[in-house]
Design a protein around this nucleic acid. Structure first.
Length: 923
RNA sequence: GCCUCCGUAGCUCAGGGGUAGAGCGCUCCCUUGGUAAGGGCGAGGUCAUGAGUUCAAAUCUCAUCGGAGGCUCCA
């Protein structure tokens, strides 16, 4: 017998050989079609985890498949290496961010090599290197010159924990998305990117093959709404209050106004009598977190300012209130309240006894809407009433100008100068400055009030290395005088760039990571762009994925792709649309979750103290092995908090407090045990160190080999969904690869083979090729591998029955290894070499699907009686309708049910793509 | 509350108007000189529930129940 499959021996060998022979070097070749496959670059946090493997290895398999199909494939990798964790490591462990980052990065790069992926490491880009961030700075300057980057004052999110401002996209439910700590609103002067200028274009996903949820999330985030803007003047003094409304047709129903408590005019317009209560309310809301404020079904609180506004459409004097249900961050931070037709305003009016007026009368109701009878605001269609000249206008369900009443009112507002059509976005400009050290410097200098960009020839502004990390929480740059002090009057910007800016263009840097004349080489860009397939997590939907689209569009409008466009033309390719979007196809992988784990079955002895037991002895035993007469607490350890055990038996939880010096016996763990070593029940949930359900890929590779781990990850999950880890299932892919190994190293059989079996295995091979192709195309890696297993099973059975001859064996094994190559690159390469084929299997062509060879010849004609299958008759694959019906009617089943009568109908269903032909006899 | 996706074998998932499928797991048998293994045989499903359309529904339609994700005082 031949030797066994020993993954480690071959994997390291081939990884070295691939590297030495530069097998994965990708270079521009205008004679070949290109394919730019990209997976989101990792942050160098320390160790590669199973999620990285899950994200990267299936993408690698697909990239390899594309390469074998004849594409010139670019599949680069790099690191998103700026960010707070490095700085926190510096503060807490006194390691410089450079050192911490580089150590992690080198470690992760080594771990990534063990994947056997086809990354072209010669194109690696690392965002924290001066060679990289020079161009992040350079882009910032170009943006500044064209008014895309600007310094402005705005209410921003300040994180006390992180001591920096954050972009809106990084704040979820009022909390920082990374640490989950609350943020506060602060008025600050910061650097912004004018992403709102691109809001409408970003809403257009034409030509993008992206997951629907991502498009929806971006659309929601941008939050476009059409309506009108109008100014309400105060009755006393001249303080116009800007409002935005999507319902200008209800302007005549405005019976009061509401300002957000943070609104700048609150202080100005409040009357002395109301001053105390207004101040009190403003103070209260300032203390509320965003979360509290956004709770549903909250009581509508608010206070009167004492001031009045004049409704511009009917000169009515209406009171101005402040209330926390109006958000300073949305629209103008002030609203006209129309309680008759807006539920929130209705609730507020009811709570504070404010007048309600009907200005839209539902047309189809027999009884007219009256304020007295209303129990809720009416927001349906109808006819405008109580609205002077606009009365009678039809207000439909439609939004914006599509609604005739709204269109008419907008026209009237514009004609009379009382207001204008307006579009409001939820999206705000992108706040890109951070009060942190470990980020790309912003290349700006302040001279008094004047802002002076650093000249291009002085880029990059280097991050100083000799900085002190003081526990003040402040960026070391703010007290590093050599850095910020340019001269006596000029001071350098000490804020740094949001790391999302660096990752907004990394797909361009891969094109030419060593280029020092430009951020990217035009010729390379012309050939490779855009990214054809982008894979990564869905959590970046409104951050990275929105930012990078914005970035691409800005670069295009600034003419930064002009050279690339010219190069495309030179090479006879159409540049139309090539630089509008960064990534054509986007797919999100799901998440590998921690598997479910049974808790230890424990026997606790001790004495009862009130409701719970105070235990002096806890023993772990085999499941349900309770000694007769045991009178303590026993059951599964469901949960543990410190030394309190939650022991569950038959759905009842009992609490056991374990004494400090109690005896803990865990048979599987030798030596003296303690309460912390008890294993509690684990639900299926995200992997995290604190939950103790993390899977270490290095250990898996050590145990099973990289190929098995790759295949397990592709096979055991629906890639786009993810799911719970179950190491037991790794035996499937392991057995498969072992079998393939055995089949190949056993060599060609000596038996002569049987023609029909050989024809059959050839047919099965081609049927499998079709399924595998579809699986890879659709990112259904699991079905592609299941199909390969299935084919292996057929082949194995045929070989065992000695029905395959030597010639057929060679004809089958060769494509089998090529089909295997993208999934398990090492074993495929090893077996390929052992059979004496030319290096490398990865540069071979992908087996072509031959429909003729895949075609079945004999099939079963299914005879159905009233839709129920009753009998099968073997027939030719392309049996004609007449013959099929005749055969069916002559079948025993048909004769039995017809018993001499004529059938009502006989319906012939020809077999197509693999299904058998059928005849349904209706009796 | 709204939007999107999803309920198929014990598990993970394919399929999808026309005979209910794969891998793993499981039962039983064989092997014990491939051995933290190998081989063989087999069992397992009212395709979430209810109604409708159809000669025929797991598949299409509607409703209900259950799950996952996203949005949510958006003026």
């Amino acid at each position: 017998m031949s030797e066994n499959y020993q993954p480690h021996a071959i994997e390291v060998k081939w990884q070295q050989k691939w590297e030495d022979s530069r097998l994965y070097r990708s270079q521009v070749d205008w004679d070949k079609p290109k394919h730019y496959a990209l997976t989101m670059l990792p942050y160098p946090s320390g160790d590669l985890h199973i999620g990285h493997w899950f994200a990267m290895t299936p993408s690698d398999a697909r990239a390899r498949w594309m390469r074998m199909k004849g594409y010139n494939v670019l599949f680069p990798m790099g690191f998103d290496a700026f960010g707070l964790p490095a700085e926190q490591a510096a503060i807490s462990r006194n390691i410089h961010p450079w050192k911490w980052t580089y150590a992690n990065l080198e470690r992760m790069r080594e771990q990534m090599r063990s994947m056997g992926a086809m990354f072209d490491w010669e194109r690696e880009a690392i965002s924290c290197t001066p060679e990289y961030y020079k161009w992040s700075e350079w882009f910032f300057k170009r943006f500044y010159e064209h008014g895309i980057a600007y310094r402005g004052s705005a209410l921003v999110n300040w994180s006390e924990t992180l001591q920096t401002v954050l972009a809106n996209e990084q704040v979820i439910d009022g909390k920082d998305e990374r640490t989950g700590q609350p943020v506060v609103h602060k008025m600050m002067e910061q650097w912004f990117f004018r992403i709102t200028k691109y809001a409408d274009e970003l809403l257009n996903f034409e030509g993008l093959d992206w997951p629907e949820p991502i498009k929806i999330m971006q659309t929601n985030w941008i939050g476009r709404s059409e309506g009108a803007r109008a100014a309400f003047h105060t009755a006393v003094g001249n303080h116009p209050i800007e409002i935005f409304t999507t319902r200008p047709d209800t302007l005549w129903g405005a019976t009061f106004m509401v300002l957000a408590p943070e609104h700048a005019l609150v202080d100005v317009i409040t009357t002395p009598e109301q001053r105390a209560s207004v101040d009190e309310y403003v103070k209260e809301t300032a203390l509320e977190t965003e979360i509290e404020r956004m709770l549903e079904h909250r009581e509508k609180t608010g206070v009167f300012t004492g001031a009045y506004a004049i409704n511009p459409v009917n000169d009515e004097k209406i009171p101005i209130w402040i209330a926390d249900y109006v958000m300073i961050t949305y629209g103008a931070g002030a609203i006209m309240a129309v309680p008759g037709h807006d539920q929130r305003d209705f609730e507020f009016a009811k709570a504070h006894d404010l007048p309600i007026r009907v200005v839209i009368q539902p047309g189809d109701m027999t009884e007219a809407l009256t304020v007295e009878a209303m129990s809720a605001a009416y927001d349906g269609p109808g006819v405008m009433v109580n609205s002077d000249a606009m009365d009678g206008s039809l207000s439909s369900d439609a939004k914006g100008r599509k609604n005739p009443a709204i269109a008419r009112v907008i026209d009237w507002l514009e004609a009379t100068g009382k207001g204008e059509e307006a579009i409001n976005y939820r999206l705000h400009d992108w706040l890109i400055s951070r009060q942190r050290y470990w980020g790309g410097p912003i290349p700006m200098i302040y001279d008094g009030d004047e802002i002076i960009p650093v000249p291009d020839e002085d880029l990059p502004v280097l991050l100083p290395e000799d900085v002190d990390f003081m526990p003040t929480g402040r960026s070391p740059l703010t007290y590093h005088e050599p850095f910020f002090k340019v001269d006596e009057t000029r001071r350098r910007e000490t804020d740094t760039l949001d790391t999302f800016m660096c990752s907004s263009w990394y797909q361009l840097r891969y094109l030419s990571p060593d280029c020092d004349a430009a951020p990217f080489d035009a010729e390379e860009a012309a050939y490779w762009l855009p990214v054809d397939v982008y894979t990564g997590g869905a959590e970046h939907a409104v951050m990275h994925l929105l930012y990078t689209r914005f970035f691409t569009k800005v670069l295009r409008d600034l003419g930064l792709y002009d050279d690339a466009v010219a190069a495309m033309r030179r090479h006879g390719r159409d540049p139309e649309g090539a630089f509008d979007e960064p990534m054509t196809i986007l797919r999100n992988q799901g998440q590998v979750l921690g598997g479910e784990r049974q808790g230890d079955f424990v026997l606790c002895s001790g004495r009862a103290v009130g409701e719970r037991m105070l235990a002096h002895r806890v023993e772990v035993v085999d499941w349900n092995q309770v000694p007769p007469g045991f009178d303590g607490v026993f059951g599964e350890l469901a949960h543990r908090t410190e030394d309190v055990l939650h022991v569950e038996m038959a759905g009842i939880t009992q609490f056991v407090k374990v004494e400090r010096d109690a005896e803990v016996i865990i048979p599987d763990i030798p030596g003296k045990n303690n309460v912390n070593q008890l294993r509690h029940h684990l639900e299926i949930q995200r992997m995290s160190k604190s939950k103790g359900n993390v899977v270490n890929p290095d250990e898996l590779v050590e145990k099973y080999g990289a190929d098995v781990v790759r295949c397990y990850l592709m096979f055991n999950f629906d890639w786009q969904k993810g799911g719970p880890w179950n190491e037991n299932n790794i035996k499937g892919p392991q057995g498969w690869l072992h079998d393939v190994w055995d089949i190949v190293v056993a060599g060609a059989p000596t038996s002569p083979g049987a023609a029909d079996a050989e024809r059959d295995i050839e047919r099965k091979l081609h049927q499998s090729i079709a399924v595998i192709n579809r699986g890879l195309e659709d990112f259904s890696f699991n079905t592609a591998i299941a199909e390969q297993m299935k084919f292996k099973n057929y082949l194995k059975a045929a070989l065992r029955e000695e029905k395959i001859g030597a010639r057929c064996w060679w004809e089958i094994i060769n494509p089998t290894l090529r089909l295997l190559a993208p999934f398990a690159p090492h074993i495929a390469e090893e077996l390929w070499a052992r059979l004496g084929f030319d290096y490398s299997v990865h540069t071979q062509s992908w087996p072509a699907y031959d429909a003729e060879k895949a075609r079945e010849e004999q099939v079963d004609l299914v005879v159905m009686i009233n839709g129920k299958p009753r009998e099968t008759i073997p027939v030719d694959v392309d049996i004609a309708k007449e013959l099929a019906v005749t055969l069916a009617l002559e079948s025993a089943a048909a004769k039995r049910s017809l018993s001499g009568e004529a059938p009502k109908r006989a319906i012939f269903i020809p077999g197509r793509n693999g299904t058998d032909p059928k005849v349904n006899v209706v009796v």
